[in-house]
Amino acid sequence: MTDTAADTVRGGGLELRLRPAAASVPLDRVVFADVELVATGGPATVSARLNLVEGDLEIEVAGAGRTPVRATWPWPVDSAPRSVDLPAGGRLVAAVPLISSGSVPLFAAPGRYELTARFAARRGESVAARPVALVRTAPDDAALAARLGDRDVLQSLLGAGVIGAAAPSLELLAASADAGTAAAANLALGRTGVLADAAADPAVVRAVAALLPPGATGQDDRRDAVASRVTAQAAARDAAALTGRPLAE
């Protein structure tokens, strides 16, 4: 069953929720999704590694007639476990980029895809999210979509820095009408001021949180600059995604 509104699966007092930022995204834009782990059964101590970098979170992408692939970071890493205490009803929130499987584009062609997330929330316990649908439509700008498939560009976006010969493509992406795509490119290009000025846009915050996941990446001026602008109570979720701190009920 696929339903973007009913996107949770209960398990052991925890729920994992996956929700793409948009139900339909052209191929010349970067896809981001929100992920939440909710303590539905009472207080819980869970892994804080709710990101794609460290491997506890897996998102499988299945397209019609295609072999399912996993959204993965290009570079395998080693790290220690980190945990966080969730109060009853509390949430650990994060954002993830759905860009690549390793260094290969995650979405090969326009079409309807089914996304399934699974998170190793505690030792020996994984929680799965209900599958959700995502439609990738034909690109508005085919040339830009092609650049998004370039290895250096993918790695630059995910590495939040310019790798190889990606700079010209990143400049074009930074001019995208899509705030998330532009933010991802500006992040790689190191334009802290541009990001901070746009911090009121949830799409920008989501992109920064997804590409500089707290804990997996170290202190970063770009993330700090965006976080410093996200102070209003209405943006509590954004602040939580940037800091890794859990949200109360």
């Binding site: 970098v53 395998p76 890493v77 080693d78 390793g102 790798i163 190889g164 804990g215 997996a216």
Partner: peptide, 15 residues
């Protein structure tokens, strides 16, 4: 030195 909280990384996946 460091890269966030990571212990290590195989960082080379270019051409």
């Amino acid at each position: 030195s460091s890269q966030g909280g990571l212990f290590g990384i195989m960082f080379d996946d270019d051409t």
